[in-house]
């Protein structure tokens, strides 16, 4: 099975949910569609939604919630 990488478009802090009280946009193992939001990146106190950009199954996050990410870093993988 082929895996597809989802990369961060910009550097910042990665969040899996829209707020600490809400469930994550996607749980590990979920199926994702191209337009689905998989997380937020905080850059200098502003938040940007991160769409999956690809469709696939069994998403696996490689970055923890509230962890720093670099631009181009792989955030998650899905199976094609």
């Amino acid at each position: 099975m082929r895996t597809i990488e989802i990369k961060s478009p910009l550097p910042g802090t990665f969040y899996r949910a829209s707020s600490p009280d809400t469930p994550p946009f996607k749980a590990d193992g979920d199926t994702v569609a191209e337009g689905n939001i998989i997380g937020l990146i905080e850059v200098m106190k502003t938040f940007q939604e991160i769409p999956a950009g690809v469709s696939g199954g069994a998403i696996r996050f490689l970055v923890d919630n509230e962890e720093p990410v670099m631009a181009g870093q792989v955030i998650a993988e899905v199976t094609a």
């Binding site: 910009l10 550097p11 910042g12 802090t13 905080e42 850059v43 200098m44 106190k45 720093p68």
Partner: peptide, 12 residues
Amino acid sequence: YEGYTIPPFYDS
């Protein structure tokens, strides 16, 4: 300063 990389984590 020249060569400094502005980090994304703080105020702009």
